[in-house]
Amino acid sequence: MDAARVARAVSPPLAAFVVLVASWEALARGLHVPEYLLPPPSAIVHAAGTELPSLLSAAFVTARASLYGFGLSAVLGTLAAIVLASSRPMERALYPYTVFLQTVPIIAIAPLLVLWFGAGMRAVTVSAFIVSVFPVIANGLSGIRSADPALRDLFHLYGASRLATLTKLELPSALPSLVTGLRVAAGLAVIGAIVGEFVAGFSESGAGLGILILSSYRQLRTDLLFAAVFFASSLGLLLFGMVNLLGYLLLRRWHPSFAAVSRAE
């Protein structure tokens, strides 16, 4: 890739970051803000360094639950979209309940998840799943519905089976918007996992970032809290990046949003 272009793209946000961190450091020190209220960045970096092993193991626990939840969303969300797209009456009957998944306050039903799945990884995974599945369903559904009507006619004309129409026309057509849904779901899965940990994360299988955030808060270790938050958002970013890469690999050859070559005229 063109080094100059990368530099041009990266330098503005980098400059903003440096300015922000520097003024934060200066203000926190200059105004003598107590460290439990707003630790200066240097203190956060220091805490992250000394507590690195527990941060990493917490991040690993949360990453696992997020990945499982995200994986469930990807698989079950796509299946749900296929079922909903199979008929209009089916969509009318079931779609409102998928919207319910979107609107349910996860923090309110988290205790239920503990009752049903027991405290620990499983309840946290289900929480990550519930929070992240809706965008997969909604985007998958609209993607399947967006398949070219003329091509539907063509498939019909040649007596294509329901399965052939699904695998050779509808799912490939749905792929671009499905990838969009998965991108949103990736960030949401991490949020769902952390919220799930707040309520259900206590178990012998190890504490995740949510637990680390809660315990640093109780000990007024605000520096560690900031470090944990930073790890959590990095996790979301990582998952998002993985989905982006997957989308790029799947779509770069034919879809305009990823295509590099313009068509010959």
């Binding site: 070219d148 003329a150 091509l151 063509l154 498939f155 040649y158 007596g159 294509a160 052939a164 050779k168 026309l169 490939p172 050859r253 034919w254 879809h255």
Partner: peptide, 19 residues
């Protein structure tokens, strides 16, 4: 109305594939 993810040969062969 071709399938954008398929090359020319596989687009032209689609009806046979469906049969």
């Amino acid at each position: 109305h071709l399938l954008p993810w398929r090359n020319v040969v596989d687009n032209a062969a689609l009806p046979l594939e469906l049969e």
